[in-house]
């Protein structure tokens, strides 16, 4: 049965428990960071930061301030463009049980630029030491042991839920109705095509450039569809070449 994570950003307070918890569970080394004029740190996802809380603030015309938080990580697409874009069959795999998209050690043999550009959410990062491509694995080790993914476990605000996809969709729909009462622009980001569903109260781009997989320049087609379409033949060619 496929799993899903629902991230209700209206409940997130950017305490960064998920960011820190993820790092601790994965035993990633600390990254030397600098203050750059924002609370968002590290600046971006990286090989040792596969979960990152993004901060964005806006001032409306009447002077009202909005401050939005977006705990960014892999969406675990149901039909993952990165998987379609991979040249090897087992570098990027999808766990049947959970739907988690997993990057194996064979990603070291993939072309990083290809994989990165295939992702409509700008998630994959390269580990310069191992040359592996790295991203969130939905804590597959934990989930297989019937444990919650670390980010969900560490979320003290109740902003994250994990469970059967069907249950999460139900919960998402309920929360959307509640949030829409005060925020007519509220929406569930790419709900039909991803396993990590974000509930946002405002236009997604107010949270993060890549909050949703919008088509950059192809009318009538989402960026994701476009990428998937572009890479699928490439993969076939690659496979045929490799025999």
């Amino acid at each position: 049965m496929p799993k899903a994570i629902l991230i209700d950003t209206t409940r997130c307070t950017a305490c960064r428990g998920c960011q820190v918890g993820c790092k601790e569970w994965k035993n990633f080394p600390p990254v030397a960071t600098k203050q750059r004029g924002t609370h968002q740190n590290p600046p971006d996802l990286g090989p040792y930061n596969v979960k990152l809380v993004r901060f964005s603030e806006h001032m409306e015309a009447d002077g009202t301030v909005k401050w939005y938080f977006f705990p960014d990580a892999c969406r675990h697409c149901l039909d993952a463009p990165c998987k379609s874009g991979a040249s090897l069959p087992d570098s990027i795999i999808q766990d049947k049980e959970t739907g988690a998209v997993i990057y194996t050690e064979k990603t070291a043999k993939e072309d990083f630029a290809t994989i990165k550009s295939s992702c409509p959410y700008d998630i994959p990062r390269l580990d310069p030491k191992t040359k592996r491509i790295v991203k969130c694995d939905m804590c597959i080790d934990r989930v297989r042991a019937n444990l919650l993914p670390m980010c969900v476990k560490s979320c003290a605000m109740g902003a994250m839920s994990f469970g059967e996809r069907a249950d999460m969709l139900k919960l998402a729909a309920q929360r959307l109705v509640a949030v829409q009462k005060d925020n007519p622009k509220a929406q569930l980001c790419d709900m039909e095509s991803v396993s990590v569903i974000y509930l946002v109260a405002d236009a997604p781009n107010m949270y993060h450039k890549f909050a949703v997989a919008e088509a950059a320049n192809t009318p009538g087609m989402t960026r994701k569809e476009m990428l998937a379409g572009a890479f699928s033949p490439l993969r076939k060619i690659a496979q045929s070449l490799q025999g």
């Binding site: 476990k153 979320c155 605000m157 109740g158």
Partner: peptide, 11 residues
Amino acid sequence: TAVDNEFIQAN
């Protein structure tokens, strides 16, 4: 037990 409250949850 999920509390329907947008703040800290007891884990």
